[in-house]
Simulated assay, not measured.
Amino acid sequence: MVGFPLLLIPLAVYNIIVFLMPGVSLADPLLTVTLVSGAEWRITLSDVLLALGILLLLLEVIKGARPGAKFVMDHLLSLIVFGAAAAEFVLWPKFGTSTYGLLTLLALVDFISGIALRTRRATVAPARRAQQVEPEPAPPPQAAPAPQPASAPAPLPAAPPTPANPVPPAASVAESVLLDHSKPTQAQPAVASPDLQPDRNPPPEPERR
């Protein structure tokens, strides 16, 4: 958005007074202010235009100091205003006064201050970007921790003492009984005593009559 050159306002007021109000004098006092010291301060139209130009120049500098506030077109307009004011001051007799000369000087200050602020911003912006992009320094290397002495291995827990006469479990006893019954025992031949053995020579039978 193109900014309006504020110093064009007092210059335009001066042109209006010169061309449209020829009977108005810039040196005539508009009002008189009595100071504390008792002196009377006479304020003329010329003083009002100069004070207005100084205040507007201050606003122009504030606008130019903001980031991105002034563009190339704004500087070009300020240059055009200064060139037109300087041409009127040199070429037209009615503009050859101290009041208009000071207004032209304010227009020149506006143009130069805008160029200076833009140049300063152009040199500062890359430096800020470089600072933002610059990587952070690496932290210093930390010293390696000292080796800790190896701790002795923990002793193994002692095994519980075994009983002297261990009692066999009931399951093993039952298995052994079943195995004993499942195996058939071979019968041993009985040995007869000599008294019980039968007589191999039977007694003779009695004779029949």
Rank of each mutant, 00 (worst) to 15 (best):
F82V: 07
K94Q: 15
V33L: 14
I112M: 08
A107K: 00
L35G: 08
A144H: 02
S182F: 08
A152I: 02
L52G: 04
F19C: 00
A164M: 03
F89P: 00
R128H: 08
A125V: 09
L178F: 04
A170C: 06
A174Q: 09
N165R: 14
V72G: 11
K63D: 05
P153T: 00
G83S: 15
E40T: 05
I112N: 02
G23Y: 04
P166Q: 10
A86M: 13
Q142W: 02
E134S: 10
Q148D: 10
P161W: 01
V167S: 11
T44N: 00
T97L: 12
V124E: 11
S193W: 04
F82P: 00
R209M: 04
V24T: 13
L8E: 10
M1S: 12
P145C: 05
A69H: 06
A187R: 15
E205S: 12
F82C: 05
P93F: 03
H181Y: 08
H181Q: 14
E175M: 13
A138H: 04
P189H: 08
V124P: 01
V2Q: 15
G53S: 12
G53E: 02
K70F: 03
I9C: 02
P67L: 07
P10D: 05
P135G: 09
A143F: 02
L7V: 06
L6C: 02
Y100T: 06
G64N: 11
S176I: 04
P149Q: 14
L117G: 08
L108Q: 06
A174T: 12
G101A: 13
P29E: 01
T185V: 14
T104P: 02
A192R: 15
T119K: 12
F4Y: 13
